[in-house]
Amino acid sequence: MWGVQKAALAVTSLAAGMTLALQPYAASAVTSSMILGSSYEGCNEIEGDYDYVADGSAGGKVKYDTAGWAQHSYYAACDSWNDGPGVFQYTGYRYRSGAWSQIPWTSLRDSTGQYDLAFNDVRDIRFRICNRTGGKITGCDLVN
């Protein structure tokens, strides 16, 4: 009796394995990235997680939808030459009204805390963390 059950289980497992092996990879697989970086002198730090998934194509390029979060911290020891917390910014390309357009460096928010990183129909999104000195954005560094 056990031999018949083991044989049936083996055939069922083999069939299930073959079904999985024959499935093509999903074109919309989620890719995850870690966000980690700091501005000049480490005054502002950012860390978090960022996921993106292909969402079709437009204008001959793949477009993506994203989700994620990032936590922005500021070290008060930098107050002697910084104007308080810096900025976390992004750039890339957005598909709107039938065309791709570049997103200029844009601040998500001018304070510390947690940021939501949800974008739709974008590509080549990059992040940077910057200081603010003398009312200007300075000491920027691209984030991994």
Rank of each mutant, 00 (worst) to 15 (best):
Y75W: 09
C43G: 15
A70Y: 00
L117N: 04
D55N: 14
R123T: 05
L142E: 12
G86F: 06
K61C: 15
S39P: 08
Q23S: 12
G68L: 01
D79K: 04
D116G: 01
G135N: 02
T19Q: 09
A26K: 15
V53P: 01
V62W: 08
A16H: 08
G59E: 13
C78T: 10
A99I: 09
N131G: 10
N131T: 14
R94N: 15
G134E: 15
S38N: 05
R126N: 09
R123M: 10
Q89F: 00
Y90A: 05
K61F: 15
G139M: 13
S33K: 08
L108I: 09
T138N: 14
G17C: 03
K61E: 15
D49I: 04
T31W: 15
R96W: 15
P104G: 08
D51R: 08
A54V: 06
Y115V: 00
L36R: 04
P85A: 04
Q102S: 10
N120E: 05
G17V: 11
R126F: 07
Y40D: 09
P24I: 00
A15H: 01
D55S: 13
S32L: 12
L36M: 06
Q89Y: 01
R109C: 07
A76P: 04
D51C: 03
V30T: 14
A70V: 07
D51A: 06
S33F: 10
P24N: 08
P24R: 09
Y95K: 09
Y40N: 05
A118S: 07
S107Q: 11
D83H: 05
K63P: 09
T19N: 09
I35L: 13
L108Q: 11
D83W: 04
Y50M: 02
A54W: 00
A99K: 12
A15G: 00
D51G: 02
G113Y: 01
M34I: 06
L14W: 02
D121F: 04
Q71D: 11
S32A: 12
A21M: 08
K61A: 15
S32H: 13
P104M: 10
D141H: 10
G92Y: 14
Y95A: 12
Y75N: 11
W81F: 10
